[in-house]
């Protein structure tokens, strides 16, 4: 029973921590740019404020538009709850393996894009078209980099994959390094960060994610924003789980969980500082450079796969 309790605790933690993570990234970015920044809690304040605000719907909005925020939010949160943050063995982590997890995020994206097209503005359609196109190109690369790990672990279940990484001796595995770089590139693209998309931009013809949310207001907007924050945390935790899982608590005792929590937060903050530094240092790519960027990620992960067979598997 306690494991189910921890499952919920973990999911809740992800949910509550996500706005803080977003706040952390923007604060680090602000400091890097010699600004003071709005503070780590600002996303939380935004969400709270949006929840209490009235919703204004466009005349033409159909039920899809009102339905979409709930689908996007729940699909993202369910996906996040499957990713082990503290304990690798939780009953619900069997609900979806990595492929199903990617599909849940795809479901969220599907409805997000439909909502973008529902109002019938040029911006919404533009955002939907670009988001779907680029995510379609990111999908094979993501799958390929997961495959590099799965082929070693003979599994797509996150729990089994984590155990596999924990049980293998520490080796220099170039294929894993390639997969990691590819996965980082994809994570940046999927969460809509620089250099693929700029999360802070409005009214720019290069925007992707924001263009679909333009017509949202009030609680709907809050749910959408929250979902995208959860998504960032999800990808960060996924990368930690797949590549540096050391520290996860193997059984549910208090000390182990405290250690796991501390290490998780430490790893997350390292990852987010790296992200913030990259976002500060890099410029956004031209829109039609993005396919090349994703293509590079695909080639990298495919090279990882080939190298896995060439160097690491003794035939």
């Amino acid at each position: 029973m306690s494991s189910i309790f921890f499952q919920f605790l973990q999911a809740l933690l992800m949910l509550l921590l996500a706005p803080l993570a977003a706040g952390f990234i923007s604060t680090v970015k602000a400091r890097l740019q010699n600004r003071h920044g709005a503070g780590v809690l600002q996303p939380w304040r935004d969400i709270r404020k949006l929840f209490s605000k009235e919703v204004v719907l466009a005349d033409h909005a159909s039920w899809i538009f009102r339905f979409a925020p709930y689908v996007v939010f729940t699909a993202t949160v369910i996906a996040a709850s499957v990713v082990p943050a503290l304990l690798p063995d939780t009953p619900l982590s069997l609900t979806a393996d990595v492929i199903a997890l990617v599909a849940l995020l795809a479901l969220a994206r599907f409805f997000l894009s439909l909502a973008g097209m529902d109002i019938g503005t040029a911006f919404g359609g533009m955002g939907a078209s670009r988001e779907m196109t680029f995510s379609a190109l990111a999908e094979p690369a993501m799958l390929m980099s997961v495959f590099v790990l799965s082929l070693g672990a003979h599994s797509t279940n996150l729990t089994t994959m984590i155990h596999h990484v924990l049980s293998t001796p520490l080796l220099i595995q170039p294929s894993i390094a390639f997969a990691l770089v590819a996965m980082l590139m994809i994570a940046v693209a999927e969460t809509g960060r620089i250099p693929v998309d700029n999360p802070t931009t409005h009214l720019e013809l290069t925007m992707i994610h924001e263009a679909m949310l333009l017509e949202y207001s009030g609680r709907h907007l809050a749910l959408m924003e929250w979902a995208s924050m959860v998504k960032i945390l999800l990808f960060a935790t996924l990368i930690i789980d797949l590549f540096v899982p050391w520290g996860l608590s193997l059984d549910a005792n208090a000390a182990g969980i405290c250690l796991a929590l501390t290490l998780w937060l430490l790893k997350l903050s390292i990852l987010f500082v790296v992200l913030a530094v990259l976002e500060t240092g890099l410029a956004k790519l031209r829109l039609f450079e993005v396919p090349q960027y994703l293509g590079t990620a695909f080639v990298l992960s495919f090279l990882g796969l080939m190298i896995h067979y060439m160097l690491e598997v003794q035939l």
């Binding site: 204004v56 719907l57 466009a58 005349d59 909005a61 019938g120 503005t121 040029a122 939907a128 017509e215």
Partner: peptide
């Protein structure tokens, strides 16, 4: 509450301006 669509403040929208 229903209102005219915002469309980034663009007042002139037309069905043919959709994607």
């Amino acid at each position: 509450r229903r209102s005219k669509m915002w469309s980034c403040g663009n007042p002139h929208t037309h069905a043919r301006m959709q994607y």
